[in-house]
Design a protein around this nucleic acid. Structure first.
Lengths: 258, 258
DNA sequence: CGAGGTGTTGAGATTTGTCAACCTACGTGG
DNA sequence: CCACGTAGGTTGACAAATCTCAACACCTCG
């Protein structure tokens, strides 16, 4: 039974293989992880944290372009991004698909799989990445023991729902410029929380992937970038973005149609 | 402290008051509820079910047009729809808002509130409704005791996430006809699971609310209904819909752009 | 150095939105 | 019980946003 990690028997499935360090089984410890304030352990008391260290013991590396899991795979683990960057996407039979999110360090992947015991989306690494593996059944039992962990996990799921509602609002009632502005502000805010600059960023995804996430065609995304540039809001050099007028972007999102 | 039922002190807040039975505190029991196979208790063993009866002890009535909770309200309880129909919506400062879902019997409301300890959307009754009140902190402790309940609750949250991803797909990559077709098929499927006809339904929401959910203007929704009628897919008489060609609707959704 | 993936830009087509007029059904109050 | 007012629904004509198709530029990687 192909149960756990889908066997990369055919090296041809690995795109752009650039000799990723062979899955190091390093000592992992949430309690000493620099991401602990952005990840599952947020705010846990020391005792809970120690037990979490016993839960999260393995890592997994995924090379850029490779899948962490795909829709239909049996669900067993959640993953916390340690380094790197992911996208998740769902697809329709006819080939169309929709990027449902981009995940960076400290964010969880795989919550979609709990309900149906199979993953319902694809998770693709947009750069070489490392993840902490969280066996779900162990998380279940540990969170029966530790109320704070349970609560924290529920909060993470709830916030994912709220985030999704925000995306629906964006897709359902914003125009192209507002969508892109909201997207950039969201990205910089999350990057800033991770210690990066609030005003310059490197996009890890293509225009097409941004477009898919925002419900726009890649050309519209590209044009909107150009417009932002012409309006003095951004400096755009391919995937390098420098935000010149964050307030201007915020105004675009909020006071859209007065 | 206004803890449980918010005091309907000002009768003026109640629109269209048509003398709803004054919040009956009936004996409530999940174990004997006809909705148990569609609601939180799905698949729980008898012992867990009994304990659930001690958790869900109160009901709440909401008249058509009234709010169950609104964005910003402190979060304390989840709600299971017993009878009636709800919409949830999020709004932007500038007045625009987005319907994020429609909930019918057996479905849960309030999951958005766990993450921020406040509700992040409005829940509005689209018809006179009754709900079971599920105090969240008690659900937490009970689900630490009963693994099956914990797992069931996680599944419900996960499925909500998957549902939201489906809506993103709809909003991000489908055209008006596909969106409406997908919406109608989803509604009838859920109604059918509740013992209603698969081919005729009464919409509980306005064209504008459908439009908000689907990211379309009400005129577009109306025109699309008319087109479906002209194409022999539906019979439309205001809110009464009869589906004449379910296969045709499915074809619209799946094989959209060949 | 060349190839292929990615990004930009233009012109025209298409879909959806906007505004306005009008119709319909329902609930309220006379 | 009927008339009327109003919210909700339909339809038309036109405007605007976005998509489509196409050409071309750029950049990275082998």
């Amino acid at each position: 039974m192909p149960d756990t990690v889908p066997p990369p028997t055919t090296p041809s499935t690995v795109r752009r293989t650039r000799a990723i360090a062979p899955a190091p089984t390093l000592k992992v410890a949430c309690s000493s992880c620099s991401l602990r304030e952005l990840c599952l352990p947020v705010g846990l008391p020391p005792t809970d944290m120690e037990r979490l260290d016993t839960l999260v013991t393995t890592r997994r590396s995924v090379a850029r372009g490779d899948l962490l899991f795909r829709s239909g795979d049996p669900f067993q683990c959640l993953y916390a991004v340690r380094t790197g960057f992911f996208k998740t996407c769902v697809s329709l039979e006819d080939g169309r698909d929709q990027v449902t999110g981009f995940q960076m360090a400290g964010e969880l992947l795989g919550l979609d799989g709990i309900g149906g015991e199979r993953h319902s989306c694809n998770a693709v690494a947009l750069e070489d990445s490392q993840l902490c593996v969280i066996p779900y059944s162990q998380l279940e039992s540990l969170s029966r023991e530790f109320g704070e962990l349970q609560r924290q996990f529920h909060k993470i799921m709830s916030r994912e729902i709220v985030r999704d509602h925000g995306v629906m609002l964006l897709l359902g009632s914003m125009r192209a410029e507002e969508r892109l502005a909201a997207f950039l502000l969201n990205l910089t805010q999350r990057l800033q929380a991770r210690g990066f600059s609030a005003s310059s960023l490197v996009l890890r995804m293509t225009r097409e992937e941004i477009g898919s996430y925002l419900g726009l065609k890649l050309e519209t995304v590209s044009r909107t970038f150009s417009k932002f540039h012409d309006d003095g809001l951004l400096e755009v050099k391919q995937r390098d973005i420098r935000i010149l007028d964050a307030e201007g972007l915020k105004r675009l999102v909020n006071s859209a149609r007065c």
